[in-house]
Design a protein around this nucleic acid. Structure first.
Lengths: 328, 328
DNA sequence: TCCTCCAATTATGACGTTTCAATAGGTATC
DNA sequence: GATACCTATTGAAACGTCATAATTGGAGGA
């Protein structure tokens, strides 16, 4: 493989110095028209490709941003990643994307690699709640936390309290006298906050959460656990409305309903959380709380690139998307 | 912001030359134990982070691989990306991920950026069928095509003919006398191949495709088009089995069934293609053809890194996953 | 004691780019 | 015709790393 064509080869062929060639690339206005045209022609001819490493070594700044989400194969993060990509593309930047798998070691290793690469900045979805997101503080480059809140670092998140509140208000407005809530592990902040939103909605309605609400806490946000929770809840005939802390739980709940010969929304109304794209196409479209993940990603990058334009923390409002599963 | 700590700072502090420090990093066996320990201690102390740009400039090889898929927010590519990431992680490599949005310009711009970055290699899902994937040939670094086949370039793909064949065989085995097939645009090679597989399966069964098969070609692989196709097909009472060229079409079909008061599999059996993760959790789990996307991604990277271990083209076998939607 | 050999270390230059001070011409000013 | 000024270009240094060849300082053999 022949050596890549460098700025030096171009300069030689054009009979100018490398400085001039470099100027064509970086300060085109500083070089005479004729010279510039000639150099550009030679570049095209020789198929010149600038060497980003050399540039970066010289100027210090890179063209890439590192992103660590928990799992890129999770559609929830996928839309977030797309928002990030879209904002980066505006500035001609590239995204290095990794999955932490909620593994400290793995995460640390990616963050170190990012540092070595000299990334422009880093976006991270922290996990292992309360485990001091401050560990991201001295990475040596700008950092924005995704789907989190921190007293010290810039961050973006969605208002989980409000989302849950909207969902439960919707159910109460439909006339349901009792609310069942399938929640995930309370170690997860989103779950704690959603629980709070549920209680608030009930109180807003002038009711007493302790009598109106039945909560089942499950071990993980999966359909399997949703199914189990539903079978527990449905033992009680008074259960007519189930709010789930995420869509997967809601799918599990729906399956259990079907197995028991019950149907949403006729027998039991079901509301999910996350609004995973496909679920709106279901045979029975699922009512769910939509989180603006694309905007979240977009904004996180914007905070990285233009910190002065934003407050330290940006919170997005979720919106309830009402579909057939909860409306009789 | 103080300058990053360099190998030179370490050398100075340790009272050795930069060469020795470099050796600690790259040829630890060549440096005396005591010296190595001392240098490592100083590195930890000074929080040294190697400069990948400088290394890359010097040695020429980078630690990153560029990936262009059509749209990272599509779960289909997402699992592929995860396979890619997993294989890269084994070698400590990073992934730069972009969406082409089936836009030539956008794609070209990403590919050029990859070249400038000096990536180790590129993985790309070509689009705009037959538009000479040879345009990827002289990118200047190893390239593997994803979900494609090329006479010249290494590539990985799934056998679409076989997938469709399995799906339709399954329906025929269930005793369906007629098969309806909702296919996408024939400009897409996967759609053409799936059509071929459908006919083969019917012929395998000793039947005549021209009398047994009803095909509807729609404009795009979306639920909306699936719905339309279904309403067309269901006008014929003899329609008892619908095979769809992808899962989204199948979801649209299912919705239309439900609107008409019909149910799968009792009235009409439905089979999809792609086996999108969530659809197995549906209230009525969907029978679908699963494509091993994770393996596809994994293997594509392996072909990039160890070409000698693979043939030029690797084809994966899809597997039919039978669920409730197609079995009475 | 001298010589050889080996392990450990060093000095140096190069990778491709950008920046910045310096210079060469040319044009306008007086 | 000398001076000042501007524009276009140059030359050289520097960014941090790594490989190569050269050097050092012992240890072991004769």
């Amino acid at each position: 493989m022949p050596r890549r064509v460098s700025i030096k080869d171009i300069a030689e062929r054009a009979g100018v110095s490398t400085g001039t060639v470099s100027n064509v690339l970086n300060h085109p206005e500083a070089v005479a028209d004729a010279t510039r045209q000639a150099i550009l022609a030679i570049m095209a001819d020789l198929n010149f490709v600038a060497n980003a490493s050399a540039r970066q070594l010289r100027v210090g700044a890179s063209q890439t941003v590192g992103v660590v989400v928990m799992d890129i194969s999770n559609p929830f993060y996928t839309e977030l990643a797309r928002g990030i990509e879209d904002r980066l593309a505006q500035d001609g930047l590239l995204m290095m994307l990794c999955s932490s798998d909620e593994n400290e070691k793995r995460e640390a290793s990616f963050l170190r690699q990012f540092s070595e690469q000299g990334v422009l900045g880093v976006l991270v979805t922290p996990f292992g709640e309360e485990a001091a997101p401050e560990k991201y503080a001295d990475l040596g480059h700008p950092t924005v936390l995704l789907d989190a809140d921190s007293p010290t670092l810039p961050s973006v998140s969605v208002d989980h309290v409000d989302g849950a509140r909207q969902a439960v208000k919707h159910l109460l407005d439909q006339g349901h006298a009792r609310i069942s809530f399938v929640n995930g592990p309370l170690e997860l902040r989103p779950c704690r906050e959603r629980a709070e939103g549920v209680r608030l909605a009930i109180a807003d309605h002038g009711l007493d959460p302790d009598t109106v609400l039945t909560t089942v806490n499950v071990g993980a946000l999966t359909a399997e656990f949703g199914k189990g929770a539903a079978s527990q809840l449905l033992a009680d005939d008074a259960c007519t409305a189930i709010f789930c802390a995420n869509d997967l739980l809601a799918m599990g709940v729906s399956r259990e309903l079907r197995l028991r010969g019950l149907a949403a929304p006729g027998d039991v109304a079901v509301v999910g959380y996350d609004d995973i794209a496909f679920l709106s196409e279901l045979m029975l479209p699922l009512t769910s709380v939509r989180q603006p993940m694309h905007d979240l990603g977009w904004t996180a990058v914007d905070m990285l690139l233009r910190p002065q334009d934003h407050p330290k923390h940006v919170s997005f409002a979720p919106t309830l998307v009402v579909r057939e599963s909860s409306v009789r």
